[in-house]
Nucleic acid binder design. Sequence first.
DNA 1: TACCGTTATTCCCTATGATATATTACGCTC
DNA 2: GAGCGTAATATATCATAGGGAATAACGGTA
Lengths: 124, 124
Amino acid sequence: MPKPAHSARKNAKPRPGFRGRVWIDGPEGTFIGHGRVVLLERILEHGSITKAAKSMEMSYRRAWDLVDSMNRQAKRPFVELATGGKGGGGAIVTIDGKKAVRMFWRFHKDLQAFLKREEKKLTL
Amino acid sequence: MPKPAHSARKNAKPRPGFRGRVWIDGPEGTFIGHGRVVLLERILEHGSITKAAKSMEMSYRRAWDLVDSMNRQAKRPFVELATGGKGGGGAIVTIDGKKAVRMFWRFHKDLQAFLKREEKKLTL
DNA sequence: TACCGTTATTCCCTATGATATATTACGCTC
DNA sequence: GAGCGTAATATATCATAGGGAATAACGGTA
């Protein structure tokens, strides 16, 4: 029995056309990208890395790594983590994290518009 | 002693900033992209897949697969292959192939301009 | 103190590409 | 027909990323 795809990239529809992807690099490489932003939104929604990871099809390990990577590269952390305590702990997206999410989606939206323009301008 | 990286992608410089990548999808998925266009240029320069592959750090198999993929998805082939014959055969980039190369570089250049604009517009 | 659910960390296993190697087919030249 | 350099194809080997399981640490609550 084939396992369900864990990566949205593999399910990308192959319908013809102009495609693109944008992200933001930091000192260590990728800093903010599509997957990371979706993860931030899920953390905001669920309040924990564990639940956020489960809600999309991502392993806790990967989710934690991504959060850690963002926190290390950001001037101020995007997610505040609490271990132990009420409910065992949890994760809170900071103001800076929310700002990053909004900025990325604008960036992403602008790209879609750009691709539309190019598709008209450049004829195959 | 570390082996030289065979993939340019891995050497991507992690200097901070807005990044993006564009490509064109066809019926089978990726149709024209950065690596494929560079390969076309090398074939144009060397006249064979073998030499083109060697000139960049790409295995012959991968190079052949990419050429085959483009030829299958294009209305008319991008590369005409000859097996046997003078010099053992060779590879010739067609007019359509050359057009694809020019169009992709325009697309790519437009993207760079787009990224510059975004970097000014969106402050991190 | 015992319990709980989460973060934090380590180790192993597997799937996936890619590379590397080997072999065959091809067709022109000599 | 032999030789040559290439395309074409199959097989094996390797590297890497990521998943999953297991475990410890943590700090509130009852």
